[in-house]
C-alpha cells in the first residue's frame, strides 16, 4: 500500500482505536505483578499512550507525507513504517511523562512497561497493515490507505 496523506491519517486512527485498543486491554492484563501498578492504572496509562500516539501521529504523518514528496516513487517503504516507531515511541514517552506529571488522570509507566506496551502495539499494527488489513478492506490498498 502506497499511502496518501488522508490514507495515512485514517489508517492510523482506525488501527490504533481498534486493534491497538484491544491489544492494550490485553497486554495491560498480561503485565500484572506484585510490584506493578493496578490493572486500571496500567490500562489508563496504555490508553493515554494510544491517544497521544494518535494525536502526535497526525503531525508525524504530515512530516512523513512531506518527506515522501522527495521520493520518486512517492511511496513509504514498509521497513520505514516500522522503524519510525522508535522516534514516535520516544516522543510519546516524553509526552506521556509530561501528562502524568501534570494530571492525576494519567498514571505514569515504567520504561520497560512502556517499551513492551508501545513496542508490541506498534509491531502488531504494522504486521496487520502489511497483510491482513487487505483482506477485510479490499479497496484500502488501492486508495492509498483511505477508508472514507
Amino acid at each position: 500500500m502506497t499511502p496518501t496523506l488522508a490514507g495515512r491519517i485514517q489508517t492510523r486512527l482506525l488501527l490504533l482505536s481498534t486493534i491497538g485498543l484491544a491489544w492494550v486491554v490485553l497486554v495491560a492484563a498480561l503485565l500484572g505483578g506484585s510490584a506493578s501498578p493496578s490493572y486500571t492504572d496500567r490500562l489508563r496509562a496504555g490508553v493515554a499512550a494510544l491517544i497521544i500516539t494518535m494525536l502526535l501521529g497526525v503531525v508525524w504523518e504530515l512530516v512523513y507525507h512531506a518527506a515522501q514528496q522527495y521520493r520518486w516513487e512517492k511511496d513509504w517503504p514498509t521497513g520505514l513504517a516500522l522503524a519510525v516507531g522508535l522516534t514516535e515511541g520516544t516522543a510519546v514517552w516524553f509526552a506521556l511523562n509530561t501528562a502524568a506529571r501534570r494530571s492525576t488522570l494519567v498514571p505514569s509507566m515504567t520504561v520497560p512497561m512502556f517499551v513492551v506496551v508501545f513496542g508490541t502495539t506498534w509491531l502488531l499494527i504494522w504486521l496487520f497493515a502489511s497483510g491482513p488489513m487487505r483482506v477485510v478492506a479490499l479497496r484500502w490498498r488501492y486508495r492509498g490507505g483511505r477508508l472514507l
Partner: peptide, 27 residues
C-alpha cells in the same frame, strides 16, 4: 520532487511507473 534516477544511457525506476501510480497520490 519529481526526479527520476538516470545515467549511462538508462532511465531507472524499479517498476514501469512510480509505485504511487498504482495506489497512492499519483493514482
Amino acid at each position: 520532487r519529481f526526479r527520476r534516477q538516470g545515467g549511462g544511457g538508462f532511465a531507472y525506476q524499479p517498476f514501469n511507473f512510480p509505485k504511487a501510480a498504482w495506489s497512492g497520490q499519483l493514482r
